[in-house]
């Protein structure tokens, strides 16, 4: 690295987002949500309250779903951050994205990134969740459009697809 100028009132760190190392300078009080959206241009992560109430800002940090509006970005140095932008593999959508698109899991789409990331954490840890487990896992992600039913159906379908893909690989 060359010379790193220190900007007064800002910290300069490297964040690992969707597998990429990203250098970023920001005021130290900024939340991960703000740094993702405002400093890294990753506006896929949404906000509905900025108080940790709605789940729209959920991202994965070291594989666990976390409310980015309640997390300071400086706490995330060296940790693996996953956002909705990193989920698809090139043009190929993740099974959760496929299922949400096909089964009506997304209507206005505003809660969708947070809901999908939360569901991903669930399926990464529990490949065969019951619908009750899915509802429990998604209970912190508010949605005003779908009535949740098609979200739960989407996660169930994606779980089946993920398991199928694993079997094919094996």
């Amino acid at each position: 690295m060359g010379i790193t100028a220190t900007v007064p009132g800002k910290v300069h760190i490297t964040l690992k987002v969707n597998g990429e190392e990203m250098e970023v300078s920001f005021a130290p009080y900024k939340t991960l949500l703000e740094v993702l959206r405002e400093d890294l241009g990753l506006t896929g992560t949404k906000h509905g309250c900025e108080l940790g109430e709605c789940g729209a800002c959920a991202v994965l940090v070291d594989g666990a779903p976390l409310l980015s509006c309640l997390t300071l970005a400086i706490e995330c140095e060296g940790r693996a951050i996953e956002t909705i932008e990193g989920l698809a593999n090139g043009p190929e959508l993740h099974p959760l994205q496929e299922a949400f698109a096909d089964l009506g899991g997304s209507q206005c789409g505003y809660c969708t990134p947070g809901a999908i990331m939360t569901a991903k954490a669930l399926l990464d840890n529990e490949p065969e969740p019951s619908s009750q487990r899915i509802k429990e896992a998604m209970a912190g992600n508010l949605c005003r459009c779908t009535g949740y039913q098609q979200i739960v159906e989407s996660v169930e379908k994606a779980a089946g697809c993920c398991r199928h893909a694993e079997r094919v690989k094996a």
């Binding site: 959206r37 959508l93 789409g109 969708t112 990134p113």
Partner: peptide, 21 residues
Amino acid sequence: RRRVDARAKVTGLARFADDLT
């Protein structure tokens, strides 16, 4: 059918007003 705007919504590409700068 998959609705025409579904892909943008599940990939985070849909641009809402506060996403604009």
